[in-house]
Amino acid sequence: MKIPIELIRIVVALVAVMAWVGLNALLLVYCERKYAGHIQRRPGPFEVGPHGIIQPLIDGLKLMAKQLLMPDGADAILFWLAPILSMIPVLLLFLCIPYSPLLTGWEVNLGLLLILAFAGLNVLALLLAGWGSNNKWGLLGAARAVSQSVAYEIPLLLAVLAIAFQTGTLNLTEIVNGQGSWPWQWNIIVQPLAFLIYFTSILGETNRAPFDLPEAESELTAGFHTEYSSMGFGLFFMAEYANMVVVCSVATVLFLGGWKGPFFDGWWWFLAKTYVLLFVMIWLRWTYPRVRFDQLLNINWKWLLPLAVANLLGTAFLMKVFA
């Protein structure tokens, strides 16, 4: 039997992606702590390695060395299923991000759709975690996660749809190819509103401050992951960072010209743009207070959603007029 080359490619890519996700998480944890430190006028981690560079690795080791605990009366299957479920879809998403024309794990024609479909699975993990841990704080966190994710997915999709309208494709590589090397040739110039809506919505989708209500520690202690310790928590943690990378990568592809950039196109542009977006997300977290839950939903239903619909209709109209 001949093993298809595509399958081998996917398996190799999957292994590479796992390494990349782990590396990314380490890097982002380090970046987040360093950024936070400098924003707060302190050096951040400094003791382990030069400038604390291996601090995240030690953190990871510490998490792995800890005992796995499950509270009394928790639903064992759901409780352990949740962190795994939060991690697996993200791995799949990393596969189809085009880092450069050649550097794509799995070239799918409907890549954008695939990413959106699997990104929505993350909320299920939060639900199961909150429900399964037999903890009232977890339950409240899960309830918040549901309504927040249901709400923010809609403007997110609508904003992305405007780009799909404009480019006429769902293939990520083609979307990048439709943009030029210079910043004024990127989609963000044509669709600034869609970019803003997208960026706001991904803060809600990935539960990052100021929209980190499912885990708001000053209200719900830790929300859905109150009861998780050790690698159970570690997986949620890694999934959160991996999700951030995915949504920022998608933003780079859709709005910022992907791997294209002035002078030399290539994956370095992609990474640079993604990390700038990630930096903005981290910056926001360490600057703003948290919104209240009803305000969060109001922002979505009263502002983002109508704006996104208007943007979509406007795009469709202009496409019809100028096409």
Partner: peptide, 16 residues
């Protein structure tokens, strides 16, 4: 108080 409201940075400034 600002920490209660979800912003982490001001407490560091205050402690300075």
């Amino acid at each position: 108080y600002i920490l209660d409201l979800g912003a982490f940075t001001p407490i560091m400034y205050a402690f300075d």
